[in-house]
Amino acid sequence: MSGTPIQPEVSIAKGFLLRLLIVAPVAVAVSWTLAGDRGLWSSLYGLALVAVNFTIMILFFREGAKFGMTGLMTAAFLALLIGLGVLTAAIIPVANAHWMDLVVFGLVVILGHLAAVIIEARRVSGRLGDDGLAPWRLVK
């Protein structure tokens, strides 16, 4: 066993990134099929921003968890605000670019977040006594 403590909040946030990798090929293929090259580039840009958003979340969760539940909730709120700021700042300069399809971009960003969160939520326990990860493996 390693000496590092279990950090379920970081594991969950990293799980978001892993689940995004499941969703990404489907999103890119559908976007490319429906909107051509503009859809392809818009979906790739959107997925990259979703990954950045989840990375911000990982960093904030890791630091906030050091201060207990209040710190974790504060970190979650700040990660949300900063993530939305990053998304806004990243889309403004390229909104009118020749390769950008705003509909595809918006759908990929929204659905990418939702899909990763929904898939990850299936793995997480709502019970306070668990470490938060796959409690059904402990029950026989």
Rank of each mutant, 00 (worst) to 15 (best):
residue 102 L to N: 13
residue 71 G to H: 03
residue 34 L to Q: 15
residue 124 V to F: 14
residue 63 E to F: 13
residue 90 A to P: 01
residue 93 P to L: 04
residue 59 L to R: 10
residue 63 E to G: 01
residue 11 S to Y: 10
residue 81 L to C: 05
residue 105 F to V: 06
residue 19 R to E: 07
residue 45 Y to R: 08
residue 116 A to M: 11
residue 83 G to F: 08
residue 112 G to N: 02
residue 54 F to E: 08
residue 35 A to Y: 11
residue 75 A to H: 02
residue 98 H to V: 13
residue 24 A to Q: 06
residue 60 F to D: 00
residue 73 M to Y: 12
residue 86 V to A: 04
residue 17 L to S: 06
residue 92 I to M: 13
residue 17 L to P: 12
residue 11 S to D: 07
residue 43 S to G: 08
residue 37 D to S: 12
residue 71 G to T: 12
residue 124 V to M: 15
residue 50 V to Y: 12
residue 121 A to Q: 14
residue 102 L to T: 05
residue 99 W to D: 15
residue 74 T to Q: 05
residue 50 V to F: 10
residue 58 I to S: 08
residue 74 T to D: 05
residue 104 V to F: 04
residue 110 I to M: 06
residue 105 F to Y: 09
residue 44 L to T: 09
residue 117 V to F: 12
residue 86 V to G: 02
residue 65 A to S: 02
residue 26 V to N: 11
residue 17 L to C: 08
residue 14 K to P: 08
residue 92 I to E: 10
residue 47 L to H: 15
residue 23 V to Q: 03
residue 125 S to T: 07
residue 82 I to E: 02
residue 76 A to P: 03
residue 36 G to M: 08
residue 25 P to D: 06
residue 52 V to F: 14
residue 106 G to V: 03
residue 31 S to K: 13
residue 48 A to M: 13
residue 40 L to H: 11
residue 83 G to P: 00
residue 17 L to Y: 03
residue 76 A to L: 00
residue 67 F to D: 11
residue 107 L to I: 11
residue 57 M to S: 10
residue 114 L to H: 07
residue 89 A to T: 04
residue 79 A to E: 02
residue 49 L to P: 09
residue 121 A to Y: 15
residue 106 G to H: 04
residue 11 S to M: 08
residue 36 G to I: 00
residue 114 L to K: 09
residue 52 V to P: 01
residue 50 V to D: 09
residue 24 A to K: 07
residue 99 W to F: 12
residue 96 N to I: 00
residue 16 F to K: 03
residue 26 V to F: 05
residue 11 S to L: 07
residue 104 V to R: 06
residue 28 V to H: 14
residue 36 G to V: 10
residue 113 H to Q: 07
residue 36 G to Q: 09
residue 43 S to C: 15
residue 90 A to Y: 03
residue 109 V to K: 00
residue 78 L to C: 07
residue 55 T to M: 02
residue 28 V to Q: 07
